[in-house]
Design a protein around this nucleic acid. Sequence first.
DNA 1: CATGAATGAGAGTTCATTCAT
DNA 2: GATGAATGAACTCTCATTCAT
Lengths: 195, 195, 195, 195
Amino acid sequence: MGEKSLQKKRFILETARKVFMEKGYKSVTMKDIVEACEISRGGLYLYFGSTAEIFMEVLRMETEETDDVFSDSITEDATVADILMLFLKEQKRELLRKRNNLTVATYEYYFGETVPKKDNILKHRFDAAVKIIEKLLEAGVENGEFYCEDCHGMARNIMFVLEGLKISAHTVGVTEDMVDEELIFILRELGIEDE
Amino acid sequence: MGEKSLQKKRFILETARKVFMEKGYKSVTMKDIVEACEISRGGLYLYFGSTAEIFMEVLRMETEETDDVFSDSITEDATVADILMLFLKEQKRELLRKRNNLTVATYEYYFGETVPKKDNILKHRFDAAVKIIEKLLEAGVENGEFYCEDCHGMARNIMFVLEGLKISAHTVGVTEDMVDEELIFILRELGIEDE
Amino acid sequence: MGEKSLQKKRFILETARKVFMEKGYKSVTMKDIVEACEISRGGLYLYFGSTAEIFMEVLRMETEETDDVFSDSITEDATVADILMLFLKEQKRELLRKRNNLTVATYEYYFGETVPKKDNILKHRFDAAVKIIEKLLEAGVENGEFYCEDCHGMARNIMFVLEGLKISAHTVGVTEDMVDEELIFILRELGIEDE
Amino acid sequence: MGEKSLQKKRFILETARKVFMEKGYKSVTMKDIVEACEISRGGLYLYFGSTAEIFMEVLRMETEETDDVFSDSITEDATVADILMLFLKEQKRELLRKRNNLTVATYEYYFGETVPKKDNILKHRFDAAVKIIEKLLEAGVENGEFYCEDCHGMARNIMFVLEGLKISAHTVGVTEDMVDEELIFILRELGIEDE
DNA sequence: CATGAATGAGAGTTCATTCAT
DNA sequence: GATGAATGAACTCTCATTCAT
C-alpha cells in the first residue's frame, strides 16, 4: 500500500470515528461511513471489510493518542497530588462530555465481539491506568502527601469507580455534582481534603 | 384483554427475556422473538409494537422480581454484616454469570433510548440500592460492626464499584479473583476482615 | 335475518359511510370499518364479505335517500326556473363540500370494479337527472321562461358540466367563483340572467 | 447520475407508465413496478423512493409530450374550425381509449395527494387548454367561422364538458355515440353544423 | 350470533456485498 | 485503485380471513 493509500485509510478512520461518536457502534453501517467519507461504496471495501474492522482500527488510533496525553501530564513538573488531581479532572471532563465520546461505541463493540484477552485494548488501557495510579499513590504515600494502606487495591478501586461513573453517565445519567461527590469521597479516603 | 391473553403476554415476555439475554438488545429483531415464541409474525404485534416496548416490559418484570428478592434477604434474621455479605455475594454471582444475564441488553437499551429520568428504571434501582446499603452501613456502625465516616458516600462508592465491575465483566472481562479482591478491599475499608 | 340484524346492518352501513367519506374507497380496509363500528372483526364478516360489498350497499342507501330529496324539490309549488335554480344550487353546495362527500369514494369504486351496466347505480342516477332536467327545460320553454333549441342535448350538457366540475373539485380544485361563473354561463345560454 | 442511469430512469418511468395505465395509481405497488421492469427490489429504490414519486415523474413526462402535440396541431396550416375539430377528435379518441390511458391513475393520484396549487400539473394543463380554446374561438369569431358571445366562458364550458365525459367514461361508461352527440351539441352552439 | 386471537401473505425499505467498467 | 449500479437477503409492519369458544 502506497503513501497515498495510507493517507486515505487514515482519512477514513478519522471520519468513521466521528460517525461512531455520533451513533455508537451497532447502528453504524458501512453506508453511513461511505456517506460520511464521501467516497464510493466499493472504495471503502478496498480498505476495510466491515464496521468491526474499522472500529478496531479507530480504537487502536485512539489508544495511541491517549497514551501520549497520559505520559505528557506525568512528565510535567508538579506534586504527586497535583498529577492525581489532573488525571481525575481529565476523567471527569470525559465523563461529562456526552457527545464527542467513543465510550458508548466502545462498550457496544465489546459487548458483541468476543475479543481474545491479548488483543483487548480496553484491558490494556485499564491495567496501564491502574499501574500508573498505583505508582502515583505509592509516591504520594512515600512523600507523605497521601495516606493509603493498600495502594494497588486503592488504584483498582479508583478505576472501577471511574468505570462505574462512565457507564452510569450513559444509562442513568450523572451530573457534575455526582461526579464531584464521588471524587471527593475518594480523595478523602486518601487523606486529601479537596479545595 | 382476557386472562388467556395475559398468560400469553407473560409467555412472550419470558421467551423474549431469554432472547435478550442471548443476543443483547440491539441485535434482537421482532422476527427473533416471533421465532423463539413459535408464534406468527402478526401474532406478536397483537401484543407488542416493537422490541423497545417488549424490552421495557421485560425490564419492569425483572425489577419487580429483583425487588422481592431484595426485601426477602433483609427480613431474614441475621447480623447486619451477614446481610451485607449476602448482598455482595449475590452481586458477585450475577457479575460472573456471563449468560442468563440481562446486563448487556439493558446497557444497549439505555445507550440508544433517551429515557426520561422519572421512568428510568435503572436509576430507580441504583438509588434504591444506595439507600438500602446506606441504611445497612448506618445500622452496622450503630452496633459496632463497621467503621464508616460517611455512610452515604460509602454506599454510593460501593454501588459505583459494582457498576464498574459489571460493565468490566462484559468488556475487559473479570475473573472471580478480581471480584473478590475488590470486595475484600471494600470490606477492609469498613473494618471487616473477610474470612 | 331478524329485525335486530337488520338494524345492525344499517348501523354498519351508516358508520362505514362516514369512513368512506373520510378516506375514499380504496384506502378503506375492513379493519377501518370494524374499528369505526366498534364491533368485532368476525362480527363484520357475518354481514359483509368485503369493502366492495359494503360500499355497494352504502351507495344503494345513498341513492334511495337522494331520490327522495329530488322528488321533494319538484313537488314543491314554484316556477320552473326556481326549481332549476334550486337544483343547481344544491349541486353547487355538494360540489364545494370537500368533506362529508362520497364523491371520491364513488369514483374510486367505479374505477376499480367493472360494474355491469344494468346495476350501475351511477348510470341510473345520471340518466334520471338528465331526464328530469330535460322535462324541466321543456316545461320552461313551454311557458316562455327559457330559450332552448335542443332540450335533451342541453340537459345532458348541463349534467356533463356538473360532472366535470365535480371531478375538478377533487383534482385541480374549484372555488365558489368558478362554479358560479360556470352556472351563470349555462343560465345565460338558456336566456336567464342571474340575479 | 450518469448518462446510463438517465436511460434506466427513463426505462423505469416508461415501464411504470404502462403499469399505471393497467392498474390505476392506488393499487400499484413498488413490487409491481419492480416486476414489470425486471429489476431487483433494491434497484428501483436507487431511482425512486415511492410510487407517488414515480407517478409524478410519469405525469411530468406525459405533460411535456402532450404539450408538444398540442402546439404541433396549432402551427399547422388549417382553418380555425379545422383545428378545433382536430382537438376535439383527439379528445374523443383519448376518451374512448379504455386501456392505454392514464386518466384513472391520474384521478386516483390527485384524490389522495393534496398537491399545492402551483405544482398541480393537471391545473396547468386545464388552464392552458382553456386559454388555447379561447384564442381559437376568438379567431373563429373574428373571421366569421363561429358565433360565440362569451369566448372565455365557452372555452371553460367545453373543457368542463370534456372533463365530465372523461370521468364518465370510467364510471358510467360512454359510447362513441354519446361523445358525438355531446360534441355536436357544442359545435351547434358555436353555429357549426357538423358533417 | 358474536368475539377477538391467530395466521400468513405481502408490501415497504434498507444494506452488505459484488462486479463490470 | 476507484466507482457506483445492481442484487438479494432480511426486517418491519399491516391486514384479510378464519375459527375455536
